[in-house]
Design a binder for these strands. Structure first.
Lengths: 212, 212
DNA sequence: GCTAGTTTAAAACGTCTGTTTTCAGGCGTG
DNA sequence: CACGCCTGAAAACAGACGTTTTAAACTAGC
């Protein structure tokens, strides 16, 4: 029982509340109250609030990155004895994994995108540095495949365009509730995460190829 | 003297500190201390911390939106008796105004982009609703011109792609310091705001046109 | 049954927060 | 001069916060 019930309930509650209100605005008391556990349990199991935040990210990101890493290895094998991996295939892979690597529950993916948005706009370096250190290799691996998919885009421009794409994804999906309201009002159309992802793919593909 | 010296100094300090550390993490004491004014001055002049945040946005956004509005009216006049406004021209206009509508000081623009990032990831509705209410018309005006620049993109897809672009811009520019460090390490190239904007334009143009 | 690890309950700690108040002076306008 | 507005200094307020502590239960494994 490496993962006791209390730990899991704390992580679940923290995940939702951090996404809803942000890190600083979410108190440990709110978390433990929602989780139905004792206030002291957080510091008992995690040591500090900061460590809890990292644990929330780790629980989500590790399975996703492992899945992505495995798929990328597959693709590298395919592309070694054959043609390059097309851009659309790479993007589709990432999006499918991001939305579906946790038991087909896009709502959790949505929560996590909000979390990522908060993490990135958070100017404290701890978290960002930690993320880069732990998940940088997978990112670079993905970038390498991408580079071969669009060889006419100079490496540095590609670097920036990938970050632009990340911005588009995280920003949009983390502000989705408000955008949903507008979309419903202006176009009378409800919007789901998978729907947005479908809209995102041509945008990102077009952006990475560049439209001068 | 509608704008006393104290008010200006508070706004200046708040702008920088909010961008650096976020809203919740910046105390009124830090602001007044940096501004060299009394703690009570904030509540005296603005009424509350929330009102101060809005004031910071207002001071920056109002001149920018006025300038944008004027330029858009120009363009509407041109396009009425003539062809459409090309997409690149619209994007270039917006970017130039965003960077230069405050006396050619891109550093302030950068600060403000960080601010916008914080505002958008902030889930409290007040600020977002307030921004939408005050600056929605200009945004819709810009969108209308955009629609005519890319008539083959369905309105709803265009709506989303504009938000994707916003995300790319705000996300990238609000996390620029960290990205600068990576870029310098990997490509040995220093990066300025104008430089990023140049990189952004083809990405956004390609994304909005869509690259299926 | 003893022991070690969990969990709860409750209270307290010190600190920081936004906000308010009080008192004092400064400044220009009528 | 007197009045109103701005500013400064200082203190206090009540509340929330992260964290720690103490004590008493529970729950397994040896």
């Amino acid at each position: 029982m490496s993962q006791s019930d209390t730990v899991k309930r704390i992580l679940d509650a923290a995940e939702v509340l951090f996404a809803e209100k942000g890190f600083a605005e979410t108190s440990l008391r709110a978390i433990t109250s929602r989780a139905g556990v004792n206030l002291a349990a957080v510091n008992y199991h995690f040591g500090s609030k900061e460590a809890l935040i990292q644990a929330v990210f780790e629980r989500y990101l590790t399975p996703f990155c492992q899945a992505l890493d495995a798929k990328l290895e597959e693709l590298e094998g395919e592309s070694r004895n054959g043609g390059e991996v097309p851009l659309e295939k790479l993007l589709l892979l990432a999006s499918r994994l991001a939305l579906g690597s946790h038991g087909d529950e896009p709502r959790r993916a949505m929560i996590f995108f909000r979390l990522s948005g908060q993490a990135y706009s958070q100017p404290q370096d701890h978290l960002r540095a930690w993320l880069r250190e732990h998940y940088g290799p997978v990112f670079r691996r993905f970038l390498a495949l991408l580079r071969r998919a669009v060889p006419d885009v100079p490496p540095m421009e590609l670097f920036w365009r990938v970050h632009f794409s990340l911005g588009a994804v995280i920003f949009t999906l983390s502000g989705m509730e408000s955008l949903q309201a507008i979309s419903k009002k202006d176009f009378n159309q409800t919007v789901t995460a998978t729907h947005i992802t479908q809209q995102l793919l041509p945008f990102v593909a077009g952006g990475i190829r560049g439209g001068g």
